[in-house]
Amino acid sequence: MNAVVSDEVKKRSAGNYVFGPQMYYLLKCTMCGAGNFVVGLGVLFAIWWATVYVITQNPEYAHYANFGLIPAFEAMPDLWVRGTIPDALMNSMYRLGMGLMYAIAIGVPVGIVIGRIVWAKKLTNVPFQFIRMISPLSWEPIAVVAFATWNDAIIFLVTIAAVWPIVYATAAGLEKVDPNWFKVARNLGANPWHILKTIIMPAIAFDVLTGIRLALGVAWIVIVPAEFLGVTSGFGYAIQDAREGMTYDNLMAMILVIGAVGYILDSICVMLIKKFSWVKESKE
C-alpha cells in the first residue's frame, strides 16, 4: 500500500516495453562519470591509432596512413574554416530536426491512440510491426518519386525511421497512467485542459522522451546513408565526397564529427529524461 507507483509500473518504466532492458543499460552507461569518459575514449582512440599503425607497417599499405587518428584531427581545423563541417552540420541537423519534428507530431498522437484504445492497438499491431521491420533506406527510391526534392525525400526517410520508437514509447507511457488520477483531479475541480497539462503530460513525458532518444539514435544513423544520393550537402555527402576525392583524412574527420554530434545529442536527451523521470527506485 505504501507505494505510490506499483511495481508493475516500475517494471514497465525501466524501458522494458518494446526495446527491452538495453534501454535501461544505455541509460545507466551514459551517466558514467567523467573519468570513464576520458578512459573509454582514450582506449577507443588508442585502438584506432594502433590498428592503422600496424597496417601501415607493411609498405604496401603505407598510403592508408591517412586513415589514422592524427591525420583526422589535423584535417579538422581546415574542414571547419573552409566551411565543410559547419555546412554539413547545418544541413544534416536541419533534416534531422525536421524529420524528428514530423515523427513527434505523428508519433505522439498515434501513440496516445494505441495506448488508450485497445482495439486500435490490436488492429495496428500487424501492419505497424510489418512496416517497422523494413529498413527505412529501402523507401528511398519511392521517396524520391513521391517528393519534389531530395531534401524532402531524406526528411521522409528520417521520419519513417524515427516514428516507431516514439509511437511505442508514448503508448507504453499512457498505459501506466492511473485512471484514479483523473478521478481525483476532477474531484478537485480540474477541466479537460488541466487534466492534459497537469496529469497526462507530466505522467508520460519521461516515456515520450525515452522514445525520442531512441528515435534520435536511429535517425542519426539513417541520415548519413540517406545523404549519399541526390544531395550535395550534409554529412553523408561529405563522406561520399571525401571517398571520391580519396582524402581519407577528411573522411575520418567527418566520421569523428558524426560520432561526436550523435553523442552530444544523445546526452542532451539523457539529461532531459533524467529531469522528467518521476519513478523512483523502490526502497528495498
Binding site: N180, W181, K183, V184, N187, G189, N191, H194
Partner: peptide, 25 residues
C-alpha cells in the same frame, strides 16, 4: 470534496505540489 480509500497522489509532484494542485486548477 471526496477522498478515496487510497491516496492516489501524483508521484511526479512533491508534497507541497500535491496539496496545492486543486488551488492551481
Amino acid at each position: 470534496v471526496m477522498m478515496f480509500q487510497a491516496p492516489h497522489l501524483f508521484p511526479w509532484m512533491t508534497v507541497r505540489e500535491n496539496v496545492g494542485v486543486g488551488l492551481t486548477f
